[in-house]
């Protein structure tokens, strides 16, 4: 954090003299870049937080991270100065919009979280020939798992082939060769490697038998 703060202080005086320097003659050495402090909540440069959808949280973060800058942007005087440049109505509208946006973003995040908690991982054991099976794992992507990496992990763990395939419904699933449903469930519960952070009670194992065509 200390490094970031140092950076944040440097840009304020820096930009003014620079443009003239270009006109005069190209500097023989590379010119140092401006350091911009980005908000860690909304990723915008901090002066644009007010237009983002998480102003309250941005403010809290900045207050903790860098009190000086917080006062620069959100003190009463700064707010007063801003009012001067915009008509009162427009300002009111802007504030209203921001509040609305914020509420919306929050609701969205909530819904996403809920969906994440409710989503299921389905492990299917599919019969190929008599004693041979493949295991299909569905729904890992809802927990932010990189399917390709997970497939690689399964492949090296079980020393079999594992691939990411498209399902007819449009999604993607991991298919592991061999009957490894139980082991996969264990792995997910333990959270090995990329499978971290998945609630264990959302896993379901089902079995799919091949229809007997001979009879």
């Amino acid at each position: 954090m200390g490094r970031k703060q140092n950076r944040a202080q440097s840009p304020t005086p820096a930009p003014a003299p620079e443009p003239e320097a270009v006109e005069a003659e190209p500097a023989p050495e590379a010119r140092p870049p401006l350091e911009v402090l980005y908000c860690s909540v909304c990723s915008f440069p901090i002066e644009y937080c007010e237009f983002g959808s998480s102003l309250t949280r941005c403010k809290e973060w900045l207050k903790e991270a860098n009190e000086d800058l917080f006062n620069k942007y959100y003190s009463d005087e700064a707010l007063q100065a801003k009012l001067g440049t915009l008509s009162l109505e427009a300002q009111a509208k802007l504030e209203q919009d921001t509040a609305k946006k914020e509420a919306k973003a929050e609701a969205k995040a909530d819904a996403a979280l809920k969906k994440k908690l409710a989503s299921q991982i389905i492990i299917r054991r599919i019969e190929r020939t008599k004693r041979k099976h493949v295991t299909a794992i569905q729904g890992l992507e809802a927990f932010g798992v990189d399917l390709k990496k997970a497939a690689k992990q399964f492949a090296s763990k079980f020393a079999t082939g594992a691939s990411v395939t498209k399902t007819p419904t449009g999604g993607e699933e991991i298919v592991v060769q061999g009957d490894v449903a139980e082991e996969v469930q264990e792995m997910i519960e333990e959270g090995v490697g990329v499978l971290k952070g998945i609630p264990a009670d959302n896993i379901e194992i089902t079995e799919e038998k091949k229809k007997k065509s001979g009879e």
């Binding site: 270009v22 190209p26 500097a27 023989p28 050495e29 590379a30 010119r31 870049p33």
Partner: peptide, 10 residues
């Protein structure tokens, strides 16, 4: 409007 040295830096 960038001098070669600065471009070299990025």
């Amino acid at each position: 409007k960038i001098e070669p040295e600065t471009l070299e830096a990025i």
